[in-house]
């Protein structure tokens, strides 16, 4: 994978080595307040909450490993991680984009209401949990590799795409409880899953024309970020996972 060269004259560079997240984020806030629009963070070692309180469309390039809750409550920035991300990436995100050139951990996109997240490789548990959508907002998460259990759990909206590019020839996804409690949104999964791997609220269907459109757009963006061939990826059939019931617990109660 070619390393993207992002250094330009307008780029503000910050060395995060040895900085506590509080200090790093304070400097980021300050830089954005002063009008910086392109910032690179070098030597990031696990600092949390990067991008959280920046409500401007600023570009941030992170070199190293950002900590948990990257872009939590984020409202606008675009973050590119040249490395892996940890847990809670895009937690309750409202708007913005996160591109991860590597792996990401658990609960990626938890409760996200908008924005886009692209992960080149694998992700952890409960990814896309309780994602929502509202009016023009429809969060998109595209995972290049595979995911762990409870993918798309409690999902109430948005689009979750899992491409399985890190799986070997003939190797199936291993996640179980996919879409448990799902009552909105859609998951497009490339590669094999057995019915027992799905939550009981999930239906499987072939892609319709509208699905194709959404998927091609999502995969197109993914490939533009990471330099894959979209046509090649789309040759393999996808399954569409959708909620069987919009109100899974509607009949649970006695009034």
């Amino acid at each position: 994978m070619p390393e993207i060269n992002v250094s330009t004259a307008d780029m503000l560079s910050l060395d995060a080595r040895g900085l506590h997240y509080k200090e790093l984020n304070a400097r980021l806030r300050e830089a954005v307040a002063e009008g910086a629009t392109d910032i690179e963070l070098r030597n990031v070692f696990g600092q949390r909450y990067i991008g959280t309180d920046l409500d401007k469309p600023v570009n941030i390039h992170i070199y190293g490993t950002p900590g948990n809750d990257l872009g939590a409550f984020m409202d606008g920035p675009r973050i590119v991680v040249h490395g892996n991300a940890q847990d809670g990436c895009g937690n309750t995100m409202n708007e913005g984009e996160i591109v991860i050139h590597g792996h990401a951990g658990d609960i990626l996109g938890l409760s996200a209401r908008g924005g886009r997240i692209f992960v080149r490789e694998d992700v952890g548990y409960r990814v896309g949990i309780h994602m929502k959508e509202y009016q023009g907002k429809r969060p998109l998460v595209v995972v290049g590799g595979t995911a762990q259990d409870f993918l798309g759990e409690y999902m109430a909206g948005g689009v979750l795409v899992v491409l399985g590019l890190t799986l070997k020839e003939g190797e199936a996804h291993r996640a179980s409880y996919i879409g448990t409690g799902m009552h909105g949104g859609v998951i497009y999964l490339r590669g094999q899953v057995q019915p027992y791997q799905l939550g009981k609220e999930v239906g499987v269907a072939e892609l319709g024309e509208a699905d194709r459109g959404v998927l091609e757009e999502a995969v197109g963006q993914f490939c533009a970020h990471f330099g894959y061939d979209a046509g090649e990826i789309l040759k393999t059939p996808f399954s569409k996972l959708f909620p069987l019931y919009l109100r899974p617990y509607g009949r649970l109660y006695a009034y």
Binding site: H130, A156, H183, G184, L246
Partner: peptide, 17 residues
């Protein structure tokens, strides 16, 4: 609440983070 009208609003038992 920023969710579509007429849909159930489900709050999970734990915070999943």
């Amino acid at each position: 609440r920023m969710i579509p009208a007429g849909t159930d609003a489900l709050s999970p038992a734990p915070h999943h983070d």
